[in-house]
Design a protein around this nucleic acid. Structure first.
Lengths: 214, 214
DNA sequence: AAACTTCATGAACGACCGTTAGGTTATTGA
DNA sequence: TCAATAACCTAACGGTCGTTCATGAAGTTT
């Protein structure tokens, strides 16, 4: 037997996913406050009230998207870093994975980044703390590289800001149908980042393929 | 005689400025859509209806802020570039001025950048075109530097994206009460940018003070 | 087959939104 | 002195917002 009868869908968990997918698209395109629950419902093909069966509130949809994105980003980058031994190799792997991940999940990345201020105090502070911890990871890799003599820059904190900004920004302009493939873009950013840190050219991590150890 | 009597202010052009100042603060803090005309009016110490004596609509307040910012940014950077002769010198000057300007006018910069989507089609396309032209200026300086042999990178277009993202992002984290002065931050960014382009260290434009010719 | 749970519906709630109509007051120019 | 104008007010408009309520069909458990 099928699942539809006289009334609408009855889809179970698939509805939750449809709501999330609709929300991330709309939040990314118009912004959180410019998107109404009715628009999300319409895009997910349910009535507005049905959303409240799956989410407590509009804000909960947003925090779910953001938490999921951070979970997966952290896991992906930490795994990439763990496969490398030297500071330049680790940073190169982190940058490469960060860029690829932001290209593959550009909408989620953009929403996570740009809608922090839409959150109320508690979830906002939580997300800021997570983002700060993530940033600290990069700063420590840079500091390790300075200590080991691989990098020569004056201010690791500012460098970490700058690096994450340029790499995160890939989510703003990357076009899957564009001339450059995502791993090319990632490789260029590794090149730019290592160059900006004064790393000796071609030292560690300036690789093409993935999962490679130099 | 003073200017206040029984009823409220009667301030003339000063009211317009109060409205703009209130709007830029609120737009930067909460976002365009999360800010109501009543909140702007309250912060500017007028009644909501008074805003419409100075602005046609809420959107016109936003476009005014964005246009003003772009006007002043372009003027400042173009002047800084005009004082330099070589590609590395020009790019260094542009980066330095861009960073300083984004630090000094962080709220305006943030609103101009992040609220493009809030605009309706026509003003949005206008602003995007201006931003693209600004970006092109940077890309051409990079290409000139590659051609002259001062820079060694594989992709000037991606480099221009990355550079502008990291420099624009200063508006997101710069704190006037922080440990670093704005011209220090600018100098660090010049260092990072020239490094990422593979410029020979200390070549051209790595200066400290302003209005200096090297 | 009866009771319960899950998933969704249609209709409505009060609050707030951007904007406007129309009146009032202070200042200016003839 | 007096009309004209600029600057601002109070009040309200229609519309949309996030959310809730009451209801009920379908599926599951007992």
């Amino acid at each position: 037997m099928a699942e539809t009868k006289t009334t609408g869908a009855r889809r179970g968990e698939a509805t939750r996913e449809a709501i999330e997918a609709a929300a991330v698209d709309l939040f990314a395109e118009r912004g959180y406050h410019a998107t109404s629950m009715r628009e999300i419902a319409s895009a997910a093909k349910v009535q507005p009230a049905a959303i409240y069966h799956w989410f407590d509130s509009k804000e909960k949809i947003l925090t779910r998207l953001q938490d999921d994105f951070m979970d997966r980003l952290e896991a992906a980058v930490e795994e990439a870093v763990a496969a490398e031994a030297t500071p330049p190799g680790q940073l190169a792997a982190a940058v490469r994975e960060h860029v690829v991940f932001h290209g593959l999940h550009a909408r989620e990345a953009f929403v996570t980044d740009s809608e922090i201020r839409a959150l109320s105090t508690r979830p906002r502070n939580r997300l800021i703390a997570r983002r700060d911890a993530y940033q600290t990871m990069f700063r420590q890799m840079i500091e390790a590289g300075v200590k080991s003599g691989d990098f020569t820059i004056s201010n690791p904190a500012v460098a970490s800001y700058a690096i994450l900004l340029e790499c995160t920004g890939v989510a703003l302009w990357y076009d899957p149908k564009g001339a450059l493939a995502l791993d090319e873009i990632a490789a260029i950013h590794v090149e730019l980042v290592l160059g900006s840190l004064g790393a000796a050219p071609k030292v560690a991590g300036r690789t093409g393929a993935r999962k490679e150890r130099r």
